[in-house]
Design a protein around this nucleic acid. Structure first.
Lengths: 194, 194
DNA sequence: ATTTGCCTACCTACTAGTAGGAAGATAAAC
DNA sequence: GTTTATCTTCCTACTAGTAGGTAGGCAAAT
């Protein structure tokens, strides 16, 4: 019986945590090698180049994210609760340090020096996350639960920026609670006031 | 007559633009060497170690920022205009690509692998920027120009996060106008509504 | 005479990536 | 059911190039 997580998945897991910690240029094959007890060359067997490794990694991340967002949309009652569930997911990730930053947000900051294939995937993630937020906001507005100052797509961009900025502040200050302190009021203010 | 910018300042200038592009691990002494036409060893003469170079660089950045913010506070009429001037400064930096990202925001994303001296300076910058925003918001509130939902320090953190997140989105999408589209409404909503 | 600023030449450690082979599993051919 | 060929996964050993950093010298300025 095979191990539940294959070697290539283990490689992606540790690479992901290394990217979240230090970005594209912040990790090496040697780091992965040391972390999972396999030789450098064996990693190249699974992922011939670094660009390809990160590309597969971001692809997996995007699929997981999209699946997670979709299931939130289907499984959680109201749009307001969907937003709250989304940010509380991140809050717990930051608190327990399991994934204290969005992989794509991290990579976006290095956009200018990323391999083009990775850069376009990062753009794609930002686009689909903004799209998800927009659809939640629109849904909430149509049901009279939200009262937006701006068009849903603009409010979605504002919310996404707040979330990413809040991750950054939480990291800068080393205070996980700062994340929710910044993000919660931004969601609260969307709520219809009467 | 000496060149108006000394070699060490030229080193800091190019290092800063390289950090803004790719972070702490995204540049090397060789990159600086190639950019300003000086040998690697000569850079070590000015800045013995990379950690020291970046430390001096962030120190200079913080001084410039603090001076700029202080002069905005003194030279610009109303708190609302002070905020607008601040974000429009960034907007033009992003538009003309002269400094398309805050050095400290960039470094904050790599917080976990930064030399401790640099990390504490980055924390310091976040602290003083939040402090500046707080004082502007408080000033505006006391003069009846702003109407805040939360305490000034919380609103300041929210605003700072929006600004950093907006920088990230502008970079991810390659669209400088997105920065102001995200940030302007966040400032507008602070305005007293009656 | 010492300091400043830069140089050539070098070091060790590490970077991504390659060549080629050993061990084991798989599966078809006999 | 054993043999044979193939595939997968990992290995050792290596490459060329780059990382940050050092030693020591030279010329001009102070």
């Amino acid at each position: 019986m095979k191990s539940i997580t294959s070697t290539s998945e283990k490689i992606l897991d540790i690479a992901q945590s290394l990217i979240v910690a230090g970005g594209y240029n912040g990790f090496s094959y040697a780091d992965i090698s040391a972390a999972i007890g396999i030789r450098k060359a064996s990693i190249h067997h699974h992922f011939p180049t670094k660009a390809e490794l990160v590309s597969v990694l971001v692809d997996r991340y995007r699929q997981q994210a999209e699946a997670g967002l979709k299931s939130l949309r289907e499984g959680v009652s109201s749009p307001a609760e969907q937003l709250r569930a989304y940010v509380s997911y991140w809050h717990s990730c930051i608190r327990d340090a399991s994934l204290p930053f969005c992989v794509c947000a991290m990579l976006a900051s290095e956009m200018q020096m990323l391999p083009e294939e990775v850069a376009s995937q990062v753009r794609g993630h930002f686009h689909s996350l903004a799209g998800w937020l927009r659809s939640v906001l629109q849904d909430g507005t149509e049901n009279g639960l939200f009262q937006l100052d701006k068009r849903p797509e603009e409010e979605a961009q504002m919310l996404m920026a707040s979330i990413h900025g809040a991750m950054l502040s939480a990291r800068a200050f080393g205070d996980p609670e700062l994340f929710i302190a910044i993000v919660a009021p931004q969601i609260a203010r969307l709520q219809a006031r009467d």
